[in-house]
């Protein structure tokens, strides 16, 4: 037996490279640092593992069918299976939330497009739909309130405003909210003036 200088695997005497890590047995080289296969120099008339006749079919490594099957189906350790199971569980969890996330995202995008086109009724409906999925989003509440102001939905704007109280809002969004409120107030004033 020839012990591999790199991984200490006991190799048969006729092997010129380590069966396990494929390090040349005569030189001390680093083990493979990637999945890229290494060149091997082996007796092609014997299976490298059990010395039975190797499987035909143009394989570079002389292995019998049974040894190749065994090596190809190398068992995965329990900790790796457990890690994979955790990732699989998270994957299922994520997939179940994905449709909800997409629906909210699409509704928000449509709301923005409607708002840009001046269709505030549609924009308000879309933002309200997003609010069902993300009721704590300051951005969604602010956009909803802006469209409610534009639609003169006073009760709705008042309710949304109370939800926004005490939250940190960006300067830009704050300016938009103030201008929407001013717009609502001026509309209400002009309506009251028209009724008198």
């Amino acid at each position: 037996m020839r012990e591999c200088p790199s991984c200490k695997y006991p190799n048969p005497d006729h092997f010129s490279t380590c069966f396990k890590c494929q390090t040349p047995l005569d030189e001390s080289l680093q083990p493979s640092d990637s999945a890229a296969p290494q060149e091997t120099i082996l007796d092609s008339s014997k299976c490298a593992q059990c010395e039975a006749s190797p499987e035909p079919g143009g394989y570079a490594m002389p292995l019998c069918a049974s040894c190749r099957d065994k090596l190809a189906a190398r068992p995965v350790p329990l900790w790796a299976i457990t890690s994979f199971a955790v990732v699989l569980f998270v994957l299922v969890l994520s997939s179940s939330r994905f449709s909800e996330s997409v629906r909210a995202g699409v509704a928000y995008e449509r709301g923005q497009r409607a708002e840009a086109a001046g269709n505030y009724l549609l924009a308000e409906a879309q933002y309200a739909q997003v609010g069902e999925y993300y009721p704590d989003s300051t951005l969604v509440l602010a956009r909803l309130m802006i469209t409610q102001c534009e639609n003169m939905n006073v009760r709705g704007a008042d309710q949304t405003s109370s939800k926004l109280e005490g939250r940190e809002i960006s300067k830009e969004l704050d300016q938009e909210l103030v201008s929407a409120l001013d717009h609502l107030k001026s509309k209400l004033r002009s309506d009251q003036g028209g009724n008198q």
Binding site: V90, L91, S94, S101, Y108, L139, V140
Partner: peptide, 14 residues
């Protein structure tokens, strides 16, 4: 697939 449902609440809706 794992990150997709979480990306939107974080990036878009904070």
């Amino acid at each position: 697939i794992i990150a997709a449902p979480a990306a939107l609440p974080i990036i878009q809706f904070q």
